[in-house]
Amino acid sequence: MNPESSKLYTYADYVQWDGRWELIDGKAYNMSPSPTWEHQFAVMELSFAFRSHFQNKNCYVAIAPFDVRLSESDDYTYAKHVVQPDISVICNRNNLTPNGCLDAPTLIVEVLSPSTALKVYLII
């Protein structure tokens, strides 16, 4: 399914779609094409460094694709924000679910490319 550009969506819609998407303020953003080799190299190097640093601190390091759901309420089924940061560090085990992370991770890293720079601006 391809979301309409003018409609607002929630996580309940998001889980029905094929491909990689993010939601920011309910608006769907397609995450293709795949990242460059340089992008993936940076993500792997950083994730290794974070994993080494956090290994004895009860924190978990996840790399994309990994859903982070942000909601204004306690009902994350209808979250208007679903993002997949390149790297997420989660130090609150209660935020982890089989489908990703509920609420903001302790730390996120987004390796910027021209296509992601605009989305980062929208989130801030």
Rank of each mutant, 00 (worst) to 15 (best):
M1A: 07
M1I: 08
S6F: 13
K7E: 03
L8S: 10
Y9C: 15
Y11D: 11
Y11F: 14
Y11R: 08
D13Q: 08
W17Y: 03
G19R: 04
E22A: 08
L23A: 05
L23H: 11
G26K: 10
K27A: 13
K27I: 10
A28V: 11
A28E: 06
A28Y: 01
Y29I: 03
Y29P: 15
N30C: 05
M31I: 03
P35I: 00
W37Q: 02
W37N: 05
E38W: 04
E38N: 04
V43Y: 05
M44E: 15
E45I: 10
F48V: 13
A49L: 08
A49F: 14
R51F: 07
R51Y: 13
S52M: 09
F54M: 10
F54S: 00
N56T: 08
N58K: 12
Y60P: 00
I63V: 02
A64N: 11
P65L: 01
D67C: 00
V68W: 02
V68H: 07
L70F: 05
L70K: 09
L70P: 04
E72V: 03
Y76H: 13
T77K: 07
K80W: 05
H81S: 05
H81N: 10
H81L: 13
V82Y: 04
V82I: 07
V83L: 08
V83P: 01
Q84G: 12
D86M: 15
N92Y: 01
P98Q: 07
N99Y: 13
G100Q: 00
G100H: 01
D103G: 04
D103H: 00
D103S: 02
A104F: 02
A104C: 10
A104T: 15
A104H: 13
P105N: 11
P105Y: 03
T106D: 15
T106M: 02
L107P: 00
I108V: 09
I108M: 06
L112V: 14
L112Q: 08
P114W: 03
S115P: 07
L118Q: 14
L118N: 14
K119E: 09
L122M: 06
